[in-house]
Amino acid sequence: MNRTATIKKKAKWVHKDLLGLEYLSKEDMNLLLDTADSFREILDRPIKKVPALRGKTVVNLFYEPSTRTRVSFEVAAKRLSADVINIATETSSVKKGETLNDTGKNIEALKADIIVVRHNCSGAASMLARHVNISVVNAGDGWHEHPTQGLLDIFTLKKKLGRIEGLNVSIVGDIAHSRVARSNIWGLTKLGAKVMVCAPDILVPSGIEKMGAGITNSIDEALSNADAVNVLRMQFERDEEGVFPQQLEYFKNFGITEDRLKKAKKDIIVMHPGPINRGVEISSEVADGLNSVILEQVTNGIAVRMAVLFWLSQARNKKGKDEDTD
């Protein structure tokens, strides 16, 4: 672990929790990305395990169905030798009416070290973090943020293109209801990329330009100058007001197809946070094509989450030490 030891010496990680990329500095993000880079190699070893989090307990507390993110966190924690406990709402006392705060305090009393929480309410992770002394990782809260997804998208881009600064990144799809879009915009703009969001007007949230993103309704414009396009899933289940375009209409106007990519930069990177709806926001040919990095994103996600869990546990260790000397 020499590499992490050097990083540790140089770096200053002060956050108890990871709640969103809005709240991280450029330096914080670079530290996580560099650490993820050193962890990425572990995943290709025959024995994919290091002892960094030995004796630590990570609890996945998921109030929304999720396979990808939950499994990714679980794998990440296990690669670092942590113990992992998964709590899904169907099997917990949430069904008996226990509040999120109470559940969190109980998990803390069970001497867990990190809670990874996924919740349908924006701000749920922030609230939980205020109520427990252990670390909280936001694994997606409502429409607010999904910071590890943002980080893994950025990590993947950096791996592919060698830099973030100066890149043109377009995010296409339901921006209004997307936590992935928000985390990407905060993270990418802080690292110097130019972000453009592309969606029908109804799915562009008010004031998004103040987050540093440009706006277009034209998919061709979004693709014309882009080094990468991040294609969001159409979350039809969130369409409570019935304002979403029809699936076919959406595909016609905003779907990422080979024809459209022909007009873009030849080596444009195509990303998608998954799960993909083939033929709705992206064609199968593109999803499985040469420009797609969708499955690399999944692998990189593990490395990024390892980095997050690692630094949060470091911050906690440090905090413990400080308290001892008081």
């Binding site: 809005e22 924006s122 701000g123 809260d141 409502g142 429409w143 607010h144 943020e145 936590r179 928000r182 949230p205 008010s206 004031g207 998004i208 103040k210 987050m211 409570e240 007001e241």
Partner: peptide
Amino acid sequence: GKGLVNLGFTSTRLGL
């Protein structure tokens, strides 16, 4: 509607 905070940058930023 089901609005919770002022519409604009704040609601977008908070995802509310």
